[in-house]
Design a protein around this nucleic acid. Structure first.
Lengths: 237, 237
DNA sequence: TTCCTGCTTCGCCGCCGGCCGAAGCATCCC
DNA sequence: GGGATGCTTCGGCCGGCGGCGAAGCAGGAA
């Protein structure tokens, strides 16, 4: 690892996020999907030629990973750490910027995805429920599941074995809208995946390319409301 | 709060950190001291005129706060949240950048300040000790002190009442060198302050203006080694 | 008052980087 | 093969921003 306070790397990484077009691309990729260069060009509001240059820089800098498939090239965020930095920096930026009306209503604050795990009020409430009840216990750098916690989570369809193989089983990711941590790591990913599969959550339709937050919004279904209350004692709003 | 995924604010805030001179200034301010414009100019390696412009932009953007005193103007980081973002972003940048030799030896990884609280191996070990032993218990968005924890910390000279008045009593701040959280918030600040006052820690002398990390390095004194072991059962390296 | 020091404002220059259109490859479909 | 689609590379334009020196404006000291 190089010196992180060496201003070079810090400034270089910040510069990758400092362009509006690249920021829009990164924000769109926070939805967790891998997107093609063309989609990202439309989202960023630039022609494909310009987008191609931006994506090359982001990949070169290590913020995104590229996967070629046929004549499409799919781009996704490179790692959980990149997602966490964008979420954290976005939260600071939102509080520093002059307050503007919240154009998404409350849906995005209620529940959304942060790369591949749950965020928003639901994500934070889940974190509080799991840690406050002792189902997750603090360990070095994250959380471990207690026996009771494993049983409860398995009953909601979460594959704990798959969650264990991640580099981190469970750790915190600062939520920009709630200013409290939500759950990230392998467990966070498996929870979001399982509950979407089982119909407890559903993705809300996007409203267009320029609405980068749209791809991230999810909603709790009636079945999810019931399941969360009965399975985890979680009274989601 | 405005929309944080609106790319405007995110890109604007990132741009403030995307210049090498400004990055050096921010890195220097991570030492926790308030520095004058002249000092920051020398640290950044630019003439005062240029530095003045940079500082105006950082203040305008809300990253730093300025305090005029006589003919000096003192600059400090605006908030804990700004420090956390710089620490997090710096960690990502360090891992993305091509690995270079660690020019500070191990001292900075061992113990350093992160704005006003302890970081490095010591900061992470302290966090693990306090949370793992139940002296801090998880609450919504941070940590609360148990009775036992309050007694232990008070015995080491920490003023818990002053720690309570902070907007956050105790919360996590991701440590770039250890990739694990250390303790921030009012408690983190009071711990660092108390142990420096009591001579358990001492600041290491800097090696020059261009070494931005130098202002952050601290070392455990023999008295501190003893006190941490006896008071908290913390076997610091 | 007079001088010195710390900092800011102003004017100018040079360069980096973002943007586009056009052209060049690659891949897939018919 | 021929044509459409997705993406990249190249060349040129232009705005923005970082750099400096000089001048201006406090605040403190003698």
């Amino acid at each position: 690892m190089s010196d992180p306070t060496a201003p070079g790397p810090l400034a270089a990484t910040a510069a990758l996020m400092a362009d509006p077009a690249r920021a829009r691309m990164l924000a769109a990729l926070m939805g967790g999907d891998a997107l093609t260069a063309g989609e990202l060009a439309r989202i960023a509001g630039v022609v494909p030629a310009t987008a191609s240059g931006h994506l090359a820089r982001l990949a070169e800098g290590g913020l995104i990973a590229v996967h070629a498939q046929g004549r499409h090239r799919y781009h996704r965020l490179a790692s959980e750490e990149v997602a966490a930095v964008i979420e954290t920096l976005g939260g600071l930026a939102a509080r520093l910027a002059p307050p503007r009306p919240w154009k998404h209503g409350e849906a995005a604050r209620e529940a959304r995805l942060c790369w591949n795990h749950l965020a928003g009020r639901l994500g934070v409430a889940l974190h509080q429920r799991l840690t406050g009840s002792g189902w997750l216990t603090p360990i070095s750098g994250g959380w471990a599941a207690s026996d009771e916690g494993r049983a409860r989570l398995s009953a909601t369809g979460v594959d704990l074995d798959r969650a264990m193989v991640a580099s981190r089983f469970a750790c915190d990711c600062m939520d920009w809208s709630e200013r409290r941590p939500h759950l990230a790591g392998g467990l966070g990913r498996e929870i979001a995946s399982a509950w979407l599969d089982r119909g407890w959550l559903r993705r809300l339709p996007g409203t267009g390319d320029r609405d980068v937050l749209a791809r991230r919004r999810v909603a709790i279904t009636p079945a999810g409301l019931l399941g969360l209350r009965e399975g985890l004692g979680l009274a989601a709003a």
